[in-house]
Write a protein that binds this DNA or RNA. Structure first.
Lengths: 204, 204
DNA sequence: TTGTTGATTGGCCGACCGGTCAATCCTCCC
DNA sequence: GGGAGGATTGACCGGTCGGCCAATCAACAA
């Protein structure tokens, strides 16, 4: 039995529809994207969308499924080969940060996923969260992480710091005027939160 | 000249439309909320919506404007009377956290605001961000905050930790099974991020 | 009483929505 | 050649969308 890879599709037309729909859904959201627009962008007729994906909603589900599957799988593999210490945690943050930075579409997709009515939680994703928490607990036992914090919340805090930055950086940076977008804001932010996350904001 | 309070409306019908539209937009988003549904919920006819607000889009703008104005104003007043030290920063976090916890609708509204095409940045909000950064710089000068972090990013990190938690806590908590929703998750999370934010995750 | 004004209604419009369907077209196998 | 089957099309459907408008209603001033 072949491994079920949800990304693989041999049909180029189906793939064109998928790609067109993906970019439109990510930019405008599901409700504000008519199938006619998807068809035009993919250079096919509306009917083909239903031929290949059944309905607009099934197409959207398929897009979310493929993209999130791909993402969770990648993260899990990366986490699996790491050592449970503070350095590993820092690497995980940096990797996660850079990964989301390189794929703004995924960030927006996750945004839509969060604000829509969410269905049942994804199994892959649950496994990923549990892996992270287990690794953090291990690091605590070995004295690399302070004992009076809950690994669960450390993981979540770390996600908040990375995900929401990429979701809202333009918005927050506008607080400080247009000159603050110096092109290296991502690097600066990352350096600052690493300091804060590991050592806190208080002077040592 | 009277102070321009964008919340005040003497007309109860207009207010009913506003309230109905607000809750529907927050729950389903702008594109997925037909005016007919708003009218039904407000117990009026569709025509009245256009009579009072001009168009569906103007109504949405009005809702965002009122709610965010109210919010920024409240935050600014709170910040204005605080002292620039570490304790004040902690108070600000706790206040901000509790405020968003008490108003999940505002959290979702902000979510829609972020993921939609955003217009020009709000003046009130810019002022608020600048006030926070100024206060943090003051606290640094007096030795309450470490010197090798940028106040700008401290503010943003703090927003990420609070805002994104309220946006996505249900999602993240599902990673750790249904039993982890013990009802006191908000309190636990807040305690943990306060420790991390001020002292870091490393053992002292 | 009459005129004015704003609140409110129901009916209607043209445009567009997601989806269906029968008819073609293309390709490959017998 | 011929036909089987998937790819693809264009016309079409019922329904709903946001918005418009003339008519009515209620309140009040002249």
């Amino acid at each position: 039995m072949l491994p079920k890879n949800p990304t693989a599709t041999d049909n180029p037309t189906k793939e064109a529809i998928f790609k067109a729909a993906e970019s439109l859904f990510i930019k405008r959201g599901f409700a504000d994207t008519p199938t006619s627009l998807i068809a035009r962008k993919a250079n096919v007729t509306k009917s083909l969308i239903h031929h290949y994906f059944g309905s607009k909603e099934q197409l959207w589900r398929e897009i979310k499924r493929r993209r999130l599957y791909q993402y969770f799988e990648m993260q899990k593999n990366q986490l699996a080969l790491a050592e449970p210490d503070a350095q590993c945690l820092e690497d995980a943050i940096v990797n996660f940060f850079e990964f989301l930075k390189s794929d703004p579409g995924l960030v927006r997709l996750f945004g839509w996923y969060l604000i829509e009515d969410l269905g049942e939680p994804d199994e892959e994703e649950q496994e990923l969260g549990a892996m992270g928490a287990r690794m953090l607990a291990e690091a605590q036992k070995e004295g690399h992480i302070r004992l009076d914090v809950d690994p669960k919340y450390v993981i979540i805090a770390f996600c908040c710091l990375v995900v929401h930055w990429h979701q809202a950086k333009d918005h927050y940076l506008s607080w400080f005027g247009p000159q603050s977008s110096s092109g290296s804001v991502d690097k600066e932010y990352l350096e600052n939160i690493l300091k804060i996350f590991f050592e806190g904001v208080l002077p040592r």
